[in-house]
């Protein structure tokens, strides 16, 4: 894949004491400007893949190339520096700073990176996720869906090469989850963002351009132009194996 933003090549990862390999020779690439979902049953290694691909964890063997830079062998704090410049995150549990307002949460990664924050863009992004006027509120006063929107705004505000989303709708109700997925979709279509999303929900995966299936630490096929039904059928097959 020529314009891959993230390339994972033959990555293995075993957690200490974990026994079986969480990742067992996984190779996968994520193209720029696309929305890709990673699916698999529990324990299939999908979160481990995301952590390795995002530079949150280091693979035992194999390579991870993020935006042209080999990050599999990078050490802290260099890894953090690459990550905060190139990567945005959206987590199931938001990981927002309770002590900071929405506005400061959104600007936090850039501040930490020592970059002069692009305030205009940040305002724009907050408006796009539908939180205009809530900039001075604390996350604690927001609903779950609103918090996830803050997280997304924060990920977008830094104009990262790729946004990793780990079960972004996991803690949300159906309607709110759909709104968040809609926003992710719009970020890819309207803003040209690249999103890699780990999920176990076929309905959520259906919002992606492409779905990669994992089972027992290996890639178990993929699906382009997914629908919820197709994904569900494929998941059943993967889980049954």
């Amino acid at each position: 894949m020529r314009n891959a933003v993230v390339e994972v090549l033959d990555v293995t990862k075993t957690y200490p004491g974990g026994g079986a390999r969480a990742l067992d020779g996984v190779s996968v690439a994520f193209a720029a400007g696309t929305f890709c979902a990673v699916m698999g049953p529990s324990g299939s290694g999908k979160s481990t893949l995301l952590h390795c691909a995002a530079g949150l964890d280091r693979p035992d063997t194999g390579r991870v190339v993020l935006a042209g830079e080999e990050i599999g062998t990078l050490r802290e704090p260099r890894l953090t520096q690459v990550r905060r410049r190139r990567v945005g995150f959206v987590f199931q549990s938001y990981h927002l700073m309770d002590s900071l307002s929405v506005w400061h949460n959104v600007l936090l990664p850039q501040r930490l990176a020592g970059v002069r924050p692009d305030r205009g863009w940040a305002k724009d992004v907050i408006r796009r996720v539908g939180l205009a006027g809530r900039e001075d509120d604390r996350p604690a006063r927001l609903s779950g869906g609103q918090r996830q929107r803050v997280a997304l705004a924060r990920a977008l505000a830094g104009r990262p090469e790729v946004i990793f989303a780990d079960e972004p709708t996991g803690a949300l109700d159906l309607a709110t989850g759909r709104e968040v997925l809609q926003l992710l979709r719009e970020a890819v279509d309207g803003l040209g963002a690249t999103i890699v999303m780990v999920t176990h929900d076929p309905a959520a995966a259906a919002w992606a351009d492409r779905v990669v299936f994992l089972a027992d630490g290996r890639v178990a096929g993929e699906l382009a132009a997914p629908t919820a039904d197709l994904v569900a059928a494929r998941m059943t097959a993967v889980s049954a194996r």
């Binding site: 990550r83 990981h95 927002l96 990664p109 930490l112 990176a113 924060r154």
Partner: peptide, 16 residues
Amino acid sequence: RREFAGLRLAGATTGQ
């Protein structure tokens, strides 16, 4: 712990 984890995810280095 959580707060620090969140900060690390937001891009803070351990030094920071």
